[in-house]
Design a protein around this nucleic acid. Sequence first.
DNA 1: CCAGACTGTAACGGCTCCGAAACAACCATG
DNA 2: CATGGTTGTTTCGGAGCCGTTACAGTCTGG
Lengths: 114, 114
Amino acid sequence: MSVALTTAEALTLWHDVAFALVRDDEPDLSVRQVCILLTIYLEAPPHTVRDLAKKLAVTKPVITRALDTMGKLELVSRRRDDKDRRNVLIQRTVKGALYLERLADTIGKHAKSL
Amino acid sequence: MSVALTTAEALTLWHDVAFALVRDDEPDLSVRQVCILLTIYLEAPPHTVRDLAKKLAVTKPVITRALDTMGKLELVSRRRDDKDRRNVLIQRTVKGALYLERLADTIGKHAKSL
DNA sequence: CCAGACTGTAACGGCTCCGAAACAACCATG
DNA sequence: CATGGTTGTTTCGGAGCCGTTACAGTCTGG
């Protein structure tokens, strides 16, 4: 699928979704955090801190802290890798999946009404 | 125009754009700030602090501070209203227009390659 | 078995943001 | 004019995120 958007359409879409996120009750995630969350849910597992840091071109502590916060929100969970106990495997959660489904809904709804 | 997106498409689009924003050299704007900036550029002037606060359902200091930061980045400028000197009129700038044009490009590019 | 390389994490300092409340400048109505 | 209501801003305390650096646990190859 290929979608052509005018400048105004693209900006209106972005505005509407950002607006929905701000008005939402959910605590605001930073752009970085959303990016991390989406990477976890869109790309195939397994995900480690190192891999995510490399993919997003940020330092490892950024990933650790983002996992801390999103872990508290139960959008994501962590587990030690039994094969190599240095590794931490990042896993999806039901809440995280629902959160992103709602986000996709919001985006889709506003794209449809452009 | 009406654009239908699957869940995966919507999330991929959001991820790609967020990723581009994170990797960008520009200082990251928060979701709130982008929302304010887009409101200023998409809706018809004049814009006042009070109006923006009401539209986005945030307190006035949030707007003031966002204007401070974005003002430093020259994405937006302020001027006293001569008709009513209590008011501050928020104005667009060349840099701000260019910033949003680039954002629209990024969105459009990734929408096209869905 | 142990030195070195690799994991993820904690600690530090700096910056930004937030909401509530207090504030200063300004208008308008009597 | 004075007073009450309007505007935007500042201040305060608290919280979050960031990058750098330093750390603790784990593997691995000689």
